[in-house]
Simulated scan of single mutants.
Amino acid sequence: MASPPTTDWVHRAPPARGLERIEAYFAGHGYDMHRHDTYAIGRTLRGVQSFQYRGGWRHSLPGTTMVLHPDEAHDGEAGSHDGFHYRMLYVEPALIQQILGGQPLPFVTGGLCNDPRLGAATDALLRGVDRPLDPLEQEDALFELAHALNGVCGVIRPRRPMDYVAAERARDYLHSALDRTVTLEELATHSQRDRWSLSRDFRLLFGTSPYRYLSMRRLDLVRALLVQGQPLAEAALMAGFADQSHMTRQFRQAYGLPPARWLKMLGR
């Protein structure tokens, strides 16, 4: 039997709207504790994938679907001497909302799920990451995924009604403001919703706060600029961060590793 590799690597699929797919291998320690504002849905292909999540250790084995909720802290490391090989799908909550029509995001409490509905729904999106997804294939797969998550979780309706349209206006506005400071009052005015109702609805609908959402979109831009060859300092400023150290700190908090290591694992 071939020995497991000793070098960590990450392979990213061709880009797709609102979606990121990776395949990766880690020989030992993978990620420090971090949190991002997307769903992380994946499957371990080989080995044991161990991570801390919501106050306890989880151990993913081949055949189990991992579902990490947006903005929930987690890390990652090998649970055996063979390392762990896995595929992961990062889905923007806004895509799930567009399918479900504005309700609290489905939440898989323990982070691991053996329900065959979810396994079947993720198959199309977690196949080999070397080829791009056909646009209609992606839309169909996301529809199945959103409804599988909803069915597995049994979403509870909130006591107070939410304004999905106002929250979506705020989300769109944040995309236009990556390079400047934004206030909640400004968002509320644009969204035609009072500040605190907007803040509550945004969290329930998109899984994170408006400020965290804006920070993560800035980090998305940083990653794109780094892959294009921009230096760290210039990428930080172009994405609206005060300086390189501020960006690096937030990068590590979001992805569990510093940008230089992230680039090295991509072979850049």
Rank of each mutant, 00 (worst) to 15 (best):
A2D: 14
P5T: 13
T6H: 14
T7N: 10
W9S: 07
H11Y: 14
H11M: 10
H11A: 10
H11T: 12
A13L: 07
R17L: 05
L19F: 05
R21Q: 08
E23N: 03
E23P: 05
A27N: 12
H29T: 11
H29Q: 12
D37E: 13
D37Y: 06
T38Y: 12
T38S: 14
I41L: 11
R43K: 13
R46Y: 09
Q49V: 03
Q49Y: 14
R54S: 05
G56H: 15
S60K: 00
L61G: 01
M66H: 06
V67T: 01
E72Q: 09
E72M: 05
A73Q: 06
A73S: 13
A78R: 02
G79R: 01
S80Y: 04
D82F: 14
D82Q: 11
H85K: 05
Y86H: 10
R87T: 08
Y90D: 06
Y90R: 07
I96A: 10
Q97C: 03
G101L: 05
G102I: 05
F107H: 11
F107G: 00
V108D: 10
T109F: 09
T109D: 11
G110E: 13
G110W: 01
G111H: 01
G111F: 04
C113A: 09
N114Q: 15
P116C: 01
R117Y: 10
A120C: 04
D123A: 15
D123S: 14
R131F: 15
L133H: 04
L133N: 04
L133F: 03
L133E: 05
L133D: 00
D134Y: 11
L136R: 04
A141R: 01
A141I: 00
A141D: 09
L142Y: 06
E144P: 02
E144Y: 00
E144L: 14
H147V: 10
G151K: 04
G154R: 07
G154H: 10
R160G: 03
R160F: 09
M162D: 08
M162Y: 03
V165C: 07
A166Y: 03
A167V: 05
A167R: 08
R171C: 06
L174I: 03
H175M: 12
A177G: 08
A177V: 02
L178A: 09
D179W: 00
R180Y: 08
V182Y: 15
T183G: 12
L184W: 02
T189L: 15
H190P: 02
Q192K: 13
R193S: 09
R193A: 07
R195I: 14
R203S: 15
L205I: 13
G207L: 03
S209T: 13
S209P: 01
Y211M: 12
R212A: 15
S215E: 15
S215R: 14
M216I: 11
M216W: 01
R217C: 09
R217T: 11
R217I: 07
R217G: 03
L219K: 02
D220M: 10
D220I: 12
V222T: 04
L225G: 06
L226H: 02
L226K: 02
V227T: 11
P231D: 11
L232H: 12
E234T: 07
A236I: 10
A236C: 11
T248F: 00
R249M: 11
Q253M: 13
Q253N: 04
Y255V: 09
G256N: 04
R261H: 12
R261W: 10
L263I: 08
K264R: 15
